[in-house]
Amino acid sequence: MNFKKTTESSSLYDQLELQSVGTLLTQINREDQTVPHAVQKSIPQIEKLTEKVVEQLKNGGRLFYIGAGTSGRLGIVDASECPPTFGVPHGLVVGIMAGGDTAIRKAVEFAEDSKEQGWQDLLAQQISEKDIVIGIAASGTTPYVIGALEQSNAKKIPTGCITCNAGSPLAVTAQYPVEVVVGPEFVTGSTRMKAGTAQKLVLNMISTTAMIQLGRVKGNKMVDMQLSNNKLVERGTKMIMEKLSIEETEALQLLKQHGSVRKAIIAYEERN
């Protein structure tokens, strides 16, 4: 395989330690601006993967993200934000990373190097053909992730990936690969930067689009969001006020009574 890790290529910038704060910030920002354009080129791949995610979720399956290091953490962040944002059960979107929960805060040495452990971690979630697994790895070479996808393929579980190198072993393994080629990092090999940003953008696109397709957004509003703090209660109240053209006091009372924006609106419209 003719495969080159552009994520490991030498930075376009040098002698960074001699640069001023302002220069460093400007240069980092210049590089960051290239990321959305790289993502844009991958939209056809993202579309195919997202359509498969929607299909699996609509048929009662779950979405699994699996990764190591920064990639694993990004998957966990996206998964953890789905329930409060869209009101879905906590087990619908699941983030798994090499090294387990400990690795979320502190790197676990060599956890990503086991080609068997990723599949074992998926088995612990009682994964089945109804589910879908997305492997996340900037390099596209992480054994933990590749092994998990290989076993998923063998068990007829749909697989996708998000990687930042073209033609990587991970992309070859995944049935629905997404390759966002962002080029060399500002600090050579530091894939928490442009590659991490690209992965975050793609995860946002996949989960948000899937939740909209599942009916978890009405118009452009998060009508199923969990009312877990005062800010969200206030936001929900304003949504109801705008939708029903009623005063704040009545809207807040409806929200508290029914527990969600969607239920409050439905109850009001049925009553009137």
Rank of each mutant, 00 (worst) to 15 (best):
M1N: 11
E8K: 12
L12R: 07
L18T: 11
S20E: 06
T23H: 07
L25H: 03
L25K: 03
L25Q: 13
T26I: 02
Q27F: 09
Q27R: 09
Q27S: 14
Q33A: 13
T34N: 07
V35Q: 00
P36R: 03
P36I: 13
A38Y: 06
V39S: 10
K41Q: 08
E51K: 11
V53W: 01
V54T: 13
E55P: 02
E55Y: 14
L57N: 04
R62E: 06
F64V: 05
I66R: 03
G69C: 05
T70V: 12
R73P: 14
G75D: 05
G75I: 07
P83G: 06
T85V: 01
F86W: 03
V88R: 01
V94S: 05
M97W: 15
A98C: 04
A98F: 12
G99D: 12
I104D: 02
E109W: 03
F110G: 02
E112L: 09
E112S: 02
D113W: 13
Q117H: 07
D121G: 02
L123C: 09
I127L: 05
S128A: 04
S128Y: 13
E129D: 08
I132E: 00
V133P: 06
G135I: 02
I136Q: 00
A137K: 05
A138L: 12
A138C: 14
T141H: 02
V145S: 01
V145I: 14
G147T: 03
L149K: 10
N153G: 14
K156T: 03
I157P: 00
G160S: 15
I162D: 04
I162E: 06
I162Y: 00
T163Q: 04
T163I: 08
N165R: 01
A166L: 06
G167Q: 10
P169M: 06
Q175V: 01
E179D: 04
V180G: 13
V181L: 11
V182F: 11
F186L: 08
T188M: 13
S190Y: 09
S190Q: 14
K194G: 00
L201R: 03
V202K: 02
L203Q: 05
S207T: 15
T208L: 03
T208V: 00
A210W: 00
V217K: 14
V217N: 02
K218M: 15
K218G: 12
G219F: 14
N220C: 15
K221M: 10
M222I: 12
D224I: 06
D224E: 10
S228Q: 07
N229Q: 11
K231L: 05
K231H: 11
L232T: 03
E234H: 11
R235P: 13
T237E: 10
M239F: 08
M241V: 11
E247D: 13
Q253L: 12
K256N: 07
Q257H: 05
H258A: 10
H258D: 14
K263L: 08
A264T: 09
A264D: 01
A267G: 12
Y268C: 09
Y268T: 03
N272Y: 07
